[in-house]
Design a protein around this nucleic acid. Structure first.
Lengths: 233, 233
DNA sequence: TTGTTTTATATGTATAAACATAATAACGGT
DNA sequence: ACCGTTATTATGTTTATACATATAAAACAA
């Protein structure tokens, strides 16, 4: 195994990956320290650091100061999901996008939404219900609550033309949020709107986003039957 | 706005984030180049580079050589999901883990599995069906096909004691794979095994993993009703 | 033995300087 | 106006050096 000269961080990373996959370095093993590796590969320590840092971020290596670097025993694999704007997701599949506003009103939210949005009891929020269609067929049903206090500009938004999903992404860079994925069984409401059979299994995404000023919006996306979310690892 | 001295990459990153959120730098805007920022913040260009690279990786900035750095117009948000070993996931919730092997046999896989595993027609694969339980109740049902050609050691594995999920994670560092999340409606089989009602919506993960030698395993995890996958963004 | 302090060490970060690379913008010829 | 060539420039990477920081391990004290 004459390694030759690995003078850039990517080739160092590849070589480290190769050794892990070849089980030359097994899970739990400590690998040589940065200084040794840099000597072996004929590059600077910073280059090795750059390579190993990436592998540590992806969970394949565990690094601790003074202790050293070891191959992760049970690597917690990280799957990275892209959360695009729904219009783009549909158009990206080469299907025709259409959007339908079903209702828009100010209303007092139910307790679970109120709690999630840290809104005061009795306070009205904006409630927007809409449907995204692909090739003329229901794709996903969007049930969204918006806190106007955190985005006063929302009143100027025209949800007949642009979905709240898209409007919010374009107009309010959020600071954080959380997503929950789950499955439900189609009730009468979903049956009607998504044009599916009773009790079909439906994929659901619940998402809340916030800025420093508070929770902006909380949305439930209920997808038509057959929806799949896919990613590589 | 006396920025003072931002001498480490994290504080530079925080300041850049602050400006984006404060809409001082709006989506689509070009931000000053690394050299200017390093002068403004009183640090080295490498430090600015480190800060901005991270933000570009997370999709908030778009960088191009010569062109410069701009705030992403429609930031494709990335949700990072941890895919832990099931035992750890359950124990991590403070619940008692139990595992049950339901069946283990060599069999010719159905066409969809055969295609996904790039296995030859008529070739037998190892088929293992098992159940993971939390606090004595069904948690997830594991239906797995394994290609013994890519892992001969599999024959020594004792799936009475350790789930294939865990055995594989511990014994075969894979190089890549793909995951699909979806929802199904409980059929008679799931009803029996997961002890749920007919037609309940169930969360499903399909995952295949491979190494240089080919596809190792393809698994369907069918979760008991109420399962949620959660992450922050 | 047990708990506390010191020391050694591997990773983590910051810096300046140099060169590499991609891609825009300017130029020049037809 | 069009097309190919050449500068210019912002990001990307590598290097050596220095210092910061966490922490395991050794030394020490109770």
């Amino acid at each position: 195994m004459t390694t030759g000269e690995l003078k850039n961080w990517q080739s160092v990373q590849d070589e480290v990956l190769r050794r892990i996959h070849a089980r030359q370095w097994k899970p739990g093993d400590f690998i040589p320290n940065e200084e040794e590796l840099s000597r072996e590969f004929g590059c600077a320590r910073a280059t090795v650091n750059r390579a190993l840092r990436g592998l540590a971020e992806s969970g394949l290596l565990e690094r601790k100061r003074k202790a050293g670097t070891r191959v992760a025993l049970s690597p917690v694999r990280k799957a990275i999901l892209d959360i695009p704007v729904i219009r783009r997701e549909i158009e990206g599949k080469g299907r025709a996008y259409r959007y339908l506003l079903l209702s828009r009103e100010e209303a007092v939210p139910p307790p679970d939404i109120r709690a999630r949005m840290q809104s005061e009891p009795g306070r009205k929020l904006l409630h927007v219900i809409s449907l995204h269609m692909a090739d003329g067929r229901p794709y996903v049903f969007e049930d969204r609550w918006i806190n106007p206090d955190t985005i006063p500009e929302i009143h100027e938004a025209d949800f007949e033309r642009q979905s709240p999903n898209e409007w919010l992404v374009m107009n309010t860079p959020f600071e954080g949020g959380d997503i929950t994925f789950s499955a439900i069984s189609a009730s009468a409401r979903e049956m009607t709107i998504l044009a599916c059979k009773a009790h079909e299994g439906l994929f659901v995404i619940d998402r809340s986003t916030w800025t420093g000023k508070g929770v902006i919006t909380s949305v439930r996306l209920t997808f038509a039957p057959g929806y799949q979310m896919h990613t590589d690892i």
